[in-house]
Design a protein around this nucleic acid. Structure first.
Length: 488
DNA sequence: AAAAAAT
C-alpha cells in the first residue's frame, strides 16, 4: 500500500518505452492500469486477480440502491479479440490495417460485448483517461449501423467542438472500409447560423455533434431525422448529464429520439462520475449495465503529479518561464491550464512578449481560430498550448507529456464568502491530457494562496495520492522530477 | 467561471 501513496519515488522501468508513432497501439494497453474496474464476467476476474491488494471488493457499488451490474442477468463474455464480436470484415479491416489495433484493451474487452450484442442494453461505463473509451463507442456505432440505409442511425453527443472533430476523425478512420458516412456539427458551414442557412437533410448514418446544433438540426431545420437512431452516445457523459453542464439539452435530445423512433440504446462514457452524477445516471438510464472505477484507483500512476508553491501570483509566470519551460522544452508538448478566457489571452501575450512560441485556445475565439490553433498543435508546430477547460476533457494528443495547472481547477461557488472547492473531475481530466495510453506524463500544480494549498490537499485525499512538492526556485529539482517521471 | 449555441 505504501508505494501507492508515494508518487515521488522512482520505480524501475522494466517495460520498453511506448512508441509515439501510433495513436493507440496494443503495447500501450499493457501499461494502462485499470485494476479498479468492476467487471462483470468471470473471465475478466483474471485481469484483477494479479493485483489483489488493490481491490476492495464490492466497494465500487457505492450508491446503495445499486445491486446489479448486469441488467436482466444477461451473460456476457469478455472479448479476447475483435473477432469475438461478430464484426463485419470491413470493420475488422479498419481496426487492424487503419487503426493498427491488435486486440481489445481491457475496457474494450469488457464493454464491447454489451454494446454490440442483443439485447443492446444501455451502458454506463467509466474507465481511466487514455484507456480506449472512444473505440468502445465508435465501434459500437459503426457495428450497429446499416450502411445501405441512408439515414442517421447513431448519434454521438460531445461537450466541445474539438471533441466533436476528434471523434469524427476516429469514426472516419475506423469506418474507412465500411462505406458508412458521418455528419458533424463542427465541419463545413461553420457560419451557417449567421445566414440562417438551413441544414440540408442528413443522409449520413452517424451524426456527431454538440447539443445545441444537434437540437437545431432536429427541430428547426428538420434536417436530422431521428426515427432510425438506435444508438445514442454521450461522450464525457458525466458532464453531459450534470446539472451544471448539459443536462437539460441531453435529456431533451434523448426524449425526442425516443418519441420519434423505437427504443434506443444509450451509451454513457467518461473517466469521471461524481457520486451525484453517478446516482443521477443510474436513476435516469433504465436497465443499464455499468462499470465503475473507485476514485482512489482513477489517478494514473504513469502521470507523475507535483506541487510547486510560488511566493506570489506574479511569480507564477516566472516559475513557468524560468524553471518549467527550460526543462520541458525538450520533452514534447505541454498544455498550460488557466481558469478564465482572459487569463488565457493574458498569459499567451505575456509569454510571447518574452519570446516563447506558444498559442492559446478558449471559447471566446472564433471557430476558425480554434481550428487553426488545434491544427497547429496537432501538427507539432506549437509545443506550448495555453487553454481553458475547453480542452480539459478528451483531447487526445500522444505527444503531450506535460500538463501545468497554472490556475488550480475549482468549482464555481455561488456564494462569495464560501471557499472554492477543488474540481476533482476537472483536475483528473486535465492531468489526463498527458500519459495517453500508458505513455509517461507529468503534471505541475502552481500554488500561491492558502486556498490553493487547501484544495491540493483535498485532491490528495480524494484520489489517495501524495503530490510531492518541488522547490519553486530550483531548476535542478524540476529537471530531477522530470527524470523521475521518465521524461528527461 | 467555462463551456455549446443561440438570441
Amino acid at each position: 500500500m505504501a508505494d501507492q501513496n508515494s508518487a515521488s519515488e522512482t520505480k524501475p522501468e522494466t517495460k520498453e518505452a511506448a512508441p509515439a508513432k501510433k495513436l493507440w497501439s496494443d503495447e500501450d494497453f499493457g501499461e494502462v492500469d485499470i485494476s479498479g474496474l468492476k467487471v462483470v464476467e468471470p473471465e475478466s476476474a483474471e485481469d484483477i486477480v494479479d493485483q489483489p491488494e488493490r481491490i476492495k471488493s464490492e466497494s465500487i457499488v457505492e450508491p446503495e440502491e445499486i445491486k446489479k451490474v448486469v441488467a436482466d442477468d444477461t451473460p456476457y463474455t469478455s472479448a479476447k479479440s475483435f473477432e469475438d464480436l461478430n464484426l463485419s470484415p470491413e470493420l475488422l479491416q479498419g481496426l487492424y490495417s487503419e487503426m493498427k489495433f491488435e486486440k481489445p484493451s481491457k475496457i474494450q474487452a469488457a464493454t464491447l460485448p454489451m454494446i454490440v450484442s442483443p439485447p443492446y442494453q444501455n451502458l454506463i461505463a467509466q474507465a481511466h483517461n487514455g484507456s480506449g473509451k472512444t473505440t468502445c463507442f465508435v465501434l459500437g456505432m459503426l457495428s450497429r449501423v446499416d450502411p445501405k440505409l441512408k439515414s442517421p442511425q447513431a448519434l454521438c453527443v460531445c461537450p466541445t467542438r474539438e471533441l466533436v472533430i476528434q471523434n469524427e476523425v476516429v469514426v472516419a478512420r475506423m469506418g474507412k472500409f465500411t462505406g458508412i458516412t458521418t455528419a458533424c456539427t463542427a465541419t463545413a458551414e461553420t457560419n451557417s447560423h449567421l445566414h440562417s442557412t438551413r441544414r440540408e437533410k442528413i443522409v449520413d448514418q452517424i451524426v456527431i455533434g454538440t447539443p445545441g446544433t444537434l437540437k437545431r438540426w432536429m427541430t428547426k431545420d428538420k434536417a436530422l431525422d431521428t426515427r432510425h437512431v438506435k444508438v445514442l452516445v454521450f461522450d464525457e457523459a458525466d458532464q453531459m448529464l450534470d446539472q451544471d453542464g448539459f443536462q437539460d439539452d441531453s435529456l431533451r435530445l434523448w426524449r425526442d429520439i425516443n418519441r420519434s423512433g423505437g427504443n434506443c440504446q444509450v451509451l454513457l462514457f467518461s473517466a469521471t462520475f461524481s457520486d451525484k452524477v453517478k446516482s443521477f445516471a443510474m436513476k435516469t438510464i433504465p436497465k443499464a449495465n455499468y462499470i465503475f472505477v473507485e476514485k482512489e484507483q482513477l489517478s494514473l500512476d504513469v502521470i507523475r503529479q507535483y506541487q510547486i508553491v510560488c511566493p506570489t501570483t506574479a511569480s507564477k509566470i516566472d516559475v513557468l518561464k524560468d524553471r518549467i519551460f527550460p526543462a520541458a522544452e525538450k520533452l514534447g508538448q505541454s498544455i498550460i491550464f488557466v481558469r478564465t478566457r482572459g487569463a488565457a489571452s493574458e498569459l499567451h501575450k505575456s509569454l510571447e512578449e518574452d519570446g516563447f512560441k506558444c498559442t492559446s485556445i478558449q471559447g471566446g475565439l472564433t471557430h476558425e481560430e480554434r481550428d487553426r490553433v488545434i491544427k497547429e498543435f496537432r501538427a507539432g508546430e506549437t509545443k506550448i498550448l495555453i487553454a481553458t477547460d475547453v480542452l480539459a476533457r478528451g483531447f487526445d494528443q500522444a505527444q503531450v507529456t506535460l500538463v501545468v495547472n497554472y490556475d488550480f481547477p475549482v468549482k464555481n461557488t455561488t456564494s462569495r464568502h464560501a471557499y472554492a472547492e477543488p474540481d476533482y473531475e476537472t483536475y483528473l481530466h486535465r492531468i489526463g491530457r498527458s500519459g495517453r495510453f500508458g505513455r509517461k506524463g507529468a503534471a505541475f500544480n502552481l500554488l500561491v494562496t492558502e486556498e490553493d494549498k487547501r484544495n491540493l490537499r483535498k485532491i490528495e485525499q480524494h484520489f489517495n495520492r501524495i503530490i510531492p512538492e518541488v522547490a519553486w526556485n530550483n531548476i535542478d529539482d524540476i529537471e530531477k522530477v522530470l527524470q523521475d517521471a521518465g521524461l528527461a
